[in-house]
């Protein structure tokens, strides 16, 4: 659980958007159109969410007026589109705790992040997609015992692998890039992958094969199935291939099986959930907690489609209701972007 320090400075926001994927980004636009300036948090170090993290180069074909656009391009253009509204981004932050502030103390919420940041806001917009995008963890016995001691999902300091026996498991770009990078410094590096083919840049595959040929690294066909060692100290990696199990002596193991979503702490915030998603109404995409909205892949309602397109629509309707919390008593007029005074002003400033 997050340790939130009592001294942490509280950031006052008109709205806090959780998730900087395409839908979270567009929510900034729609909130901006009703005069709300937003803070956005994301666990990743950059905007774009799943589109950028999972499939940056995969073309998307169902964004209106964009016959073909890559995930990375889509994120880039959305950032451009929302720039006039000057959102404040907080990257590498994961939302942990939602506290409701009693009405007599002004109402609204305090959202705390894992790093201890606190946001005071009348409106929370959960646009968290399938949750925090985190490395996939294989179902290995006693895995926790080794994690961050001898089993890793990322390389923070290549030096820590110098002179060690390393197993790199996986067949994507991360696996190959790190195998190639670390092999020269390792005592022995073994790349472990389930098949001869790799879904990685052809140049990396070729380089890896040259290094194997030259005896600078080993390649074993197989899938990881166990860890051998005590107290977090790894001795060997167990793997299996076509029914045969074998061990590769190792001091460290790097696992690259891509990323998956984890809703994590958000799921415990107390809103009504349905099958792992947040239940919302289709009038304004508010959750069962008034003032907390959920849009995009994270929400569900009868007929819900997990389309970026649907998330954009959800963002627009959400903003209309959000304005009532941010500007109580003020009538919020619906405006087209072509004639919006707010947008015109913002664009002229830029």
């Amino acid at each position: 659980m997050a340790q939130v320090s009592a001294q942490a400075e509280t950031i006052h926001a008109q709205a806090l958007v959780i998730g900087a994927g395409p839908v979270g980004l567009f929510a900034v636009f729609e909130l901006g159109m009703v005069g709300i300036s937003a803070h956005v948090i994301d666990i990743l170090p950059h905007a774009g969410g799943q589109c950028v993290e999972l499939y940056p180069d995969k073309p998307i074909f169902d964004i209106p007026a964009q016959p073909r656009i890559s995930g990375a391009e889509l994120a880039e253009r959305l950032l451009q589109q929302i720039a006039p509204f000057e959102p404040t981004f907080h990257f590498n932050e994961s939302a942990q705790v939602l506290e409701r502030i009693p009405q007599e103390e002004g109402g609204g919420f305090i959202v705390s992040t894992a790093s201890g940041k606190r946001f005071r806001t009348p409106v929370v917009v959960v646009a968290a997609g399938s949750g925090a995008i985190v490395p996939k963890r294989p179902p290995l016995k006693r895995l926790e015992e080794f994690e961050e001691k001898s089993v890793f999902y990322a390389v923070r300091d290549p030096e820590q692998f110098r002179g060690r026996r390393i197993v790199v498991a996986g067949g994507g770009d991360s696996a190959l890039d790190w195998a190639i990078e670390l092999a020269p410094h390792a005592e022995r590096l073994t790349l472990l992958h389930r098949r001869q083919e790799f879904r990685a840049a052809p140049a990396s595959v070729e380089r890896m094969r040259q290094m194997v040929e030259a005896g600078q690294m080993d390649f074993r066909l197989g899938q990881i199935c166990g860890l051998v060692g005590e107290n977090g100290v790894l001795q060997a990696v167990q793997a299996r291939h076509q029914g045969e199990t074998f061990e590769i002596p190792a001091d460290a193991c790097l696992l690259f099986f891509g990323l998956a979503g984890r809703l994590g702490a958000l799921a415990q915030w107390g809103f009504e959930m349905q099958g792992g998603q947040i239940a919302v109404n289709t009038e304004n995409f508010e959750t069962s907690i008034p003032g907390v909205f959920a849009i995009g892949d994270v929400c569900t309602y009868p007929g819900k489609l997990k389309l970026i397109l649907s998330g954009f629509h959800e963002a627009a309707l959400m903003a209309q209701k959000a304005a009532r919390y941010v500007f109580p008593g003020r009538h919020v007029s619906f405006e087209h972007s072509t004639s919006s005074t707010i947008l015109a002003k913002k664009l002229h400033q830029g």
Binding site: P139, G171, H193, F198, Q223, F257
Partner: peptide
Amino acid sequence: EEDMLDFAFDV
């Protein structure tokens, strides 16, 4: 699909 299965476990 074969490519994506590289990211699955116990294929």
